[in-house]
């Protein structure tokens, strides 16, 4: 009998809700979420801004020739993104460097801050990543037409292919072009959501005594993997943005 009641109790405790961490809720009571309601998402976006400023502004306030640790980090990120933009888009892409850098630092800091226990991961929401991806998509498309006029359409016309194949390839190119923002956004949100949900699932298993060591070990392992993933996803989002920008600046195949 005792064993049975234990089992029931465990059954109750094993109510795992891995998606609860993604709920958007008003911070100051009420249940309606209007456009301007301060929610937990707003809070963590604010924390993201503060952390980004702390790193990039407070960290570099020494302006030292021999940098402090925080200044070194800021410089490494700066040089990393600068080289990426320069290598992929060329010299003429460098004037968009501040935009790309802002994008990168937002995604990176939001992802890393989201790894804190009890935090809310803003970049795990498709609303956020889709907005980012659409901003990039619209900006790049408009830029492409402004810079190249109708020559931008040569991006879809594969002049290296045999003439008969070109219309088919053009159709494929057009489809792939419009799928870009979808894959761009879902890749980031999906990675963030999946990793955090998996951690939560293992955390739910940790309440069962005899598998808790394994569960906690798994949490540690997944957490380490997630630490890698959040940086890589920020990098991937940024490098794809650079690639799209390159297409807009130099559309020829």
């Amino acid at each position: 009998m005792a064993i049975e009641s234990d089992a029931v109790e465990q059954e109750l405790e094993l109510a795992i809700h891995p998606m609860d961490q993604f709920l958007v809720k008003p911070l100051f009571g009420g249940s309606d979420i209007g456009m301007f309601t301060i929610t937990n998402a707003t809070l963590w976006l604010g924390i993201t801004v503060l952390c980004a400023i702390a790193l990039m502004v407070l960290g570099t306030r020494g302006r030292a020739i021999v940098p402090s640790r925080s200044q070194s980090i800021a410089e490494v990120i700066y040089v990393f993104i600068y080289k990426m933009v320069e290598d992929i888009t060329g010299k003429d892409g460098l004037k968009y460097f501040p935009y790309i850098f802002s994008l990168f630092i937002f995604i990176l800091v939001a992802n890393v801050v989201g790894l804190l226990p009890a935090s809310f991961t803003t970049t795990s929401h498709i609303a956020v990543t889709a907005t980012l991806a659409l901003i990039v998509f619209v900006a790049v498309t408009v830029l492409g037409f402004v810079k190249n006029g109708t020559a931008f359409l040569s991006l879809f016309w594969v002049s290296a292919a045999p003439l008969a194949l070109r219309p088919i390839l053009a159709l494929i190119e057009v489809i792939s072009y419009f799928v870009r923002p979808v894959s761009h956004s879902i890749r980031l949100a999906g990675n963030m959501m999946a990793g955090h949900a998996v951690i939560k699932v293992f955390a739910g298993f940790a309440v069962v005594t005899f598998i808790s060591p394994a569960a906690i070990g798994a949490i540690v392992a997944i957490y380490a993997l997630e630490t890698l993933v959040v940086c890589i996803q920020a990098y991937v989002f940024t490098i794809l943005t650079c690639v799209y920008l390159k297409d807009a600046l130099h559309p020829s195949h």
Partner: peptide
């Protein structure tokens, strides 16, 4: 709408701080 609004606010703040001060 809420998330997108606050995201845009965040991005604008980050962009101005980065492009005016940090970078």
């Amino acid at each position: 709408p809420n998330q997108i609004f606050w995201l845009l606010v965040t991005l604008v703040v980050i962009y101005f701080v980065m492009s005016r001060v940090a970078l």
